[in-house]
Amino acid sequence: MTTNERTAFDSATAENILRRACGLAGLVPDGIEMLRLGDHAVFRMDGGRVVSRVGRHADRLPSVRREVAVARWLAAEDYPSARLATEAEQPVVVEGHPVTFWEGLADGEKYASTREMGELLRRLHGLEPPRFSLPELRPFDKVKQRLGRAAIRAETRAYLTGLAEELAAEYQELDFVLPPGHLHGDFNVGNVLRDADGHPKVIDLDGFVTGPREWDLIQTAMYYDSFGWHTEAEYADFADGYGFDVRQWSGYTVLRSVRELLMVTWLSQNAGADPRAAEEVEKRVETLRSGGSRRAWAPF
């Protein structure tokens, strides 16, 4: 059994790993503040001038190495995205956990407008692809990995596993209409932040893959119609900025359901350490079972 399997990945464990990684990278771990805990633990340091990401498991290492390569590619293309914060070799690996350091964008989380998001995504999709290879989008692999580790009820795990199998079959039958290519993989308002000068930049670059462009459009659409996190006007601005309304595509509801499943399994990773997360997972699963409104889902 590895260290990663023996030790729960909670905020204290992640911070300890971060402090050790700072020593290896020649950085001073001042003013550490946790921002969120998911596939990575994300911390703000040094008054927000540096943001660090600590991978939950050693199996995150390939995607983090790809993230560093993507960051360098986008910088070379002068695309407005997250920039690496140190010349030290990245990622820094501590007991198998990959750790990266990024330039902070602002004192707080100030988000881009939805029109800016659509324009930035169109520009991203229009770039010449990188010289290095990107993996193919395989959303159900991530579902399987998360459910294999999640501390949730056996009944809940069985339901989500069955739902994943049903959606995987439907996903295979989708008729995508946009040309495939490189994707951000997790494009949503939380990943397009303003820098200190107010300019929007795309962050969280570890999910880059190749696949149907509809995948990068789906979250903003569902944040509007399933969750009410965007207004009708904000969503219209996004669709206009990109030049395509994914909600009018025949496969939209299937792709939306896949994304909802990923939202539940993402949160399930914290169920063993956070009672609030465990309760929220069960609440979300009940709405998936019943077809109820997603607007009661609490943000995490």
Rank of each mutant, 00 (worst) to 15 (best):
P179M: 03
L217A: 03
R256P: 02
P62K: 14
E77F: 00
P129E: 04
D240V: 02
P139W: 08
V68M: 07
G207H: 10
E136A: 11
S290P: 02
L37W: 02
E280W: 13
T265Y: 02
E77R: 15
E166A: 05
T156H: 12
D59N: 06
P135N: 05
R122G: 00
K283L: 14
A196C: 02
V258L: 04
R44Y: 07
F238Q: 01
E260H: 15
G292W: 02
Q269H: 08
P98H: 01
N4S: 14
A69S: 14
T114R: 05
D141Q: 11
E87C: 01
L134K: 08
W229I: 04
R53F: 01
W73N: 00
G292Y: 01
W229P: 03
L183G: 08
P129R: 07
E165V: 05
R6H: 12
T161P: 00
L35I: 15
D204H: 00
I32A: 09
F187L: 05
R138E: 15
K144L: 12
P179D: 11
L288W: 11
Y235W: 06
Y223M: 09
G48M: 12
E282M: 01
G148Q: 10
S81Q: 01
E214W: 11
E89Q: 12
R153H: 12
V42G: 02
T220H: 05
T253D: 14
N191K: 08
R295Y: 01
F140L: 11
A277R: 10
G181N: 00
